[in-house]
Structures are given as C-alpha cells and as structure tokens.
Design a protein around this nucleic acid. Sequence first.
DNA 1: TCTGGGGTCCTAGGACCC
DNA 2: TCTGGGGTCCTAGGACCC
Length: 420
Amino acid sequence: MFALVDCNSFYASCERVFRPDLRDRPVVVLSNNDGCVVAGSAEAKALGIRTGVPLFQVRDLIRKHDVAVFSSNYTLYGDLSRRVMTTLATLAPKVEVYSIDEAFLDLSMVPEAQLQVLGEQLRERVARWVGVPVCVGIAPTKTLAKLANHYAKRLGSGVEVWARPEDWQAVLGQTPLGDIWGVGRRLVARLEALGIHNGAALAALEYDWVRRHFSVVQARMVRELNGEPCLTLELQPPPRQQIIHSRSFGQPVVSLPPLRQAVNDYTARAAEKMRMEGQLAGSVSVWLRTAPMGKPQQLWPDSLSRDLPQASADTRELARLAVQLLEQLWKPGLRYGKVGIMLTDLRPAEHAQGGLFEASKTRQGEALMAVMDSINRSGKGRVWLAGRGVKTRQECVWSMRREYLSPAYTTRVSDLPRVS
DNA sequence: TCTGGGGTCCTAGGACCC
DNA sequence: TCTGGGGTCCTAGGACCC
C-alpha cells in the first residue's frame, strides 16, 4: 500500500502559518515577477480565481473581496516543505519526496485495519507540528493513491483509504479522465475521440492495445488503475540530468551589461547547486527572450549551447562560456524580458575525466569553489565573481518584481515573528 | 499594458555498426 | 531470380508532472 500526502493549497497555507489573521481570508500567491496566480486558498478558488491566471485579469476581484496577495517566497515554502517531510517520516519512515508539497509513503507493513487511523495521525501531526493542512490518499498503487488523495480533498474527508477493488471501481466511473495522474490535455482529447470518457473506461482497456496505440507509460497507468502496481517508491532520487536557472525581468532590458550580470548570477546559482550534488557539467546553454511575450521581435537564434573542453563545476569557466554565448545572441535595440541558462550533460564528479595538461589547474579551481561555497553557506556573508556586479538583487535593473513578499519567518533571524 | 520556473520520459526516424 | 538479423546513438517532437 502507498499513501500520497499532499498539502492543501501549499503556498497559500505557508503564508498563513505565521499570519493567523488570514485564516478565513482568501489568499493568493503569485508567480515569480508577480505575473500570475500560482496558488490560491479554498476561499480564493471559490471566488473563481484560477491557478495560472495573470494578475491583471483578477485585480478587480482581489480588491472587491479583500484578497491577501503574496509574491512567491520559496525560501519559506522550501523550509516548511522540509518540515512536512521530516514530520511524515516520524510515522512512516520510507518517504519519497515527490514534489515540494507531496510525498509518497510506503505503508506495505501496515495492517489494513490501521490504515485509516494512520492517515488521520499523519494529518494531525503535520497540522500540529508544522501548521500546514494536508490530505491523505491510501491505495495499492501510486496512481490510485493519487486519485484517492484527490477525492480526500474534494469530499473534504481528509483521508481516503481504498484497500479493495470495490473501493475504487465505483469512483472510477465518476472520474473525469483529466483527474487521473498521467492524463494531460492532449491525452484527454485523444481518449475522448476514441469514446473513452471516464476512469472506468480507461481502466477497462487492454494492456497490449494501449501499448500499441499510446506508449508503455499509458499502458502501465491502466494496470495501476486496476490495482496492479507498476511504479515503486523511489527513496533515492536519481541524479539530475540538467539544471536550469531562468528569470523574467521586472522591466525590459536593452543593453548588454545588465544581461551579462544576470547570466553571471544565474550561472553561479546553477553551478552552486550542481556542486552541492557532486556533479560536473559537460555543456552550457543560454537563451534570451524578448518582451513582451507573444510579440516576437527576434527571429533566430534565440538560444545557443556549447560543450566545455572538459566537464567542470567551476563557476568561472561556466560563466565565461555562458557570457560568450549571451554576447553572440544579443542584438542591439531589442527589448529583452528574460534570460536563462542551462547546465547539461551532467555527470558525477568522481567519474571526471582529467585533461592531459590541466590537472593542477582543476585542483586549484575545486579548492577555490569549495572555499566560496563554505563562505556562502556560513551565513556570515557572500562572495561572488565580479562579473555579477556589486549591486544587491533588488537594486539590479534585471531583478524580478516581488511587490508583496512576506518575511523569511523561518530562515532569517531578523524576520523571526514576534509573539505577544 | 500587464502572462513562471522548474523537471522527466517515450517514440520515431536517421545514421551507423557488425 | 533470389537479397538477414541484430544492435547503438542521436535528435526532434510530443507528452506529462509540480
């Protein structure tokens, strides 16, 4: 048996943890750059504010109903997510962290009669220890556990246990295709065209037929809907294959120097993340997008990539290459809205192939990066490459809009909430 | 006028190998 | 006149997830 634990309106719930005055007020959280709504509390959804809608389209609703608005505060959400996951592990030690707000748990050792009680314990403990509401779906496959969770949320029961086929069979008949994990927009259209309109019809399909007409992924899903597990708990996430860092700018950027700084900054962030995971990159890509969206002023190319002579995790080498690519992409007079960098062809550092003449240089670079990382993690200050410029993020012309940012309640001493 | 930022997996087809 | 069988690697495109 698997449990899928999913936090309710996670980002909005995080904003409420240290703001009990918001308990009954609608809350929405915006994307980076305050562009669109990425999360809304139940009250906000009831007002018709959908996830993904641009902010300017719901301004009136927000004003009229006194909706509390927040910029994304990933520092806060990431920290609360970690707390949720460690809390879950106190009741079910095998946890697969599936996303920032979801985890699969292995409940194979739990007797059927105790599943319901355990589900309720999970909810209560996370609510008490972290302050975030969660729902729990329990079933013999991950796909069914996902769906059970969906119903736990929708019915308001909080916990749904599907231990036997009769528990889910009736429900599948009422389930729209798009509610099933792994069925997106395109698949809904293709299935509908074939006369398949709900979860029960999907589950009734023959494995081989699905395998032939769709792919092995959908064929497995059909088996999972019948209670036959094809997916297992992944306790150790496989090493990442690529690291992307990209941001929209708060305002369009025309000149090259600020773009160089942004590319330096993004590359440094991505490289730091890569080093934390013990990997090297073999290749770097950069792309540029003009602003505003949907009005392409730039034709081709808008992205470039190049292999490194030797795989590296040295910010200096990666940033130098990324800036070269940027300079090839940039055209005078265009207004740019976004730049992104991607590190690909990642491989474990211990498998690194040494260059014939580069050994000592590489070792020096590694030592330098290690020192930089340890200073930056010490909490006492930061060091960076001069190419990034000396302004703080907020002062840069390329920085993103974050008009409604909440404090870093749990990760910055000066932002600790006061209790009176 | 104003619209995010990450990721993964699968398949088909082409090129090439023995 | 007759013309095999078994592979790998790469890329583009399509699909999905949060």
